[in-house]
């Protein structure tokens, strides 16, 4: 096991800059998730750690050793690919044994290692099958088994769950997390799904446009997003972000809504953020007219208009109402996020 540190890593393809100086420090045994919209450079960064892409500038160190010029096979890492990259002409056993076979390990050692990994992942009965004969979840597990057999210092996952259906994704999510807790190997995990990031990570690194927007523990990102991008990206349903300005001790949103401010709110705020789950029903609150009511059972999501200002609310209570009905709501003042004109948190 080892820590990974990325210092001022830059990547460009010709004149196209993909990463603009990224710093991440990953502790020994930590589970770090790189998350961001597609094209933000997260997969490129992962491939740079793996050695599949060279590093244009800056350095990446694994276990204290700078690996910029170390070939992938000598970095002691294992990677799970989005499409699993299982060798189709080899059985599960051969797939898992491949790296050890190349390393010319004795046959009984290989068999023991394969059995150990197969047992961890429940693949014992599938060892003689070919990848074609496996379901998506099983293939995913074989890909992880191939990584486990190598007993690497760092696990890299490149959007491993995006080819699975929703239910399997939730199941594999907790399997991967459990695996990490069992093996305690430093893990870097790339995804575009912020729920995966929130549920699995010790540390989340939110990336956008080749830069890091914010990194920290999942709940820190949720509670105190550093800027508008993180505020809008982390959390589901997404935070309501209203633009407008502060006047007479209240926030006047562009659509006409007047939102109460917490005491001591900075007058320079131009964006008012409130998560849907932090709006509550309050008879003394603001009148909002209902557009759509979406009950999910555990909560009710209501799409609302205050004047021309659009808001989404998520309430524990079962809201009954129709289009055009009035709902009285008020924001939880402690949980209001204010952002300045530069998009930074105030």
């Amino acid at each position: 096991m080892a820590d990974v540190s990325i210092r001022q890593a830059r990547k460009s393809y010709g004149s196209t800059k993909v990463l603009h100086g990224v710093d991440v420090s990953i502790g020994d045994g930590e589970f770090v998730v790189l998350v961001g919209p597609s094209g933000c450079g997260k997969s490129t960064l992962l491939r740079m750690i793996a050695g599949l892409e060279n590093i244009t500038e800056g350095e990446i160190a694994i276990g204290g050793k700078v690996v910029n010029t170390v070939p992938p096979k000598d970095r002691d890492i294992a990677m799970v690919f989005q499409n699993y990259a299982l060798y189709p002409h080899m059985t599960v056993r051969e797939n898992m044994a491949f790296s050890m076979m190349l390393a010319k390990a004795p046959a009984d050692v290989i068999e023991a290692e394969v059995q150990r990994a197969a047992k961890i992942l429940g693949l014992d009965v599938l060892l003689d099958r070919y990848p074609r004969q496996l379901s998506g979840g099983q293939r995913q597990r074989v890909a992880m088994g191939r990584a486990i057999v190598r007993d690497p210092q760092v696990f890299l996952f490149d959007e491993p769950l995006s080819n699975l259906d929703a239910k399997l994704r939730v199941q594999m999510r907790s399997e991967i997390k459990e695996l990490h807790q069992r093996l305690k190997v430093t893990t870097v995990y790339v995804t575009h799904d912020q729920i995966e990031a929130m549920t699995m990570a010790d540390q989340i690194v939110v990336m956008n446009g080749g830069r890091i927007e914010q990194s920290g523990a999942p709940l820190d990102l949720y509670d105190t997003p550093a800027n508008l991008f993180v505020a809008g990206f982390i959390g589901s349903p997404a935070m309501n972000l209203l633009s407008g300005r502060v006047r007479d001790g209240a926030f006047h949103a562009d659509g006409g809504a007047v939102m109460p401010l917490p005491p001591g709110a900075p007058p320079t705020a131009t964006t008012y953020g409130i998560r849907p789950e932090h709006l509550r029903l309050d008879d003394a609150g603001i009148a909002a007219s209902i557009i759509v009511v979406e009950p999910t059972g555990s909560e009710t999501q209501v799409s609302l208009n205050i004047g021309e200002t659009h808001l989404l609310g998520a309430f524990r209570e079962r809201v009954m109402g129709r289009h055009g009905d009035t709902l009285m709501i008020s924001p939880d003042l402690d949980l209001v996020h204010l952002f300045g004109p530069d998009g930074r948190r105030l």
């Binding site: 793996a50 050695g51 992938p72 096979k73 890492i77 690919f81 990259a85 060798y87 790296s99 191939r146």
Partner: peptide, 18 residues
């Protein structure tokens, strides 16, 4: 042949001949 197979093999420690 998917390039990711070659990448996986690269990480598995293969030489070009392998």
């Amino acid at each position: 042949i998917s390039p990711s197979l070659y990448e996986a093999a690269l990480l598995d420690g293969s030489t070009p001949w392998q």
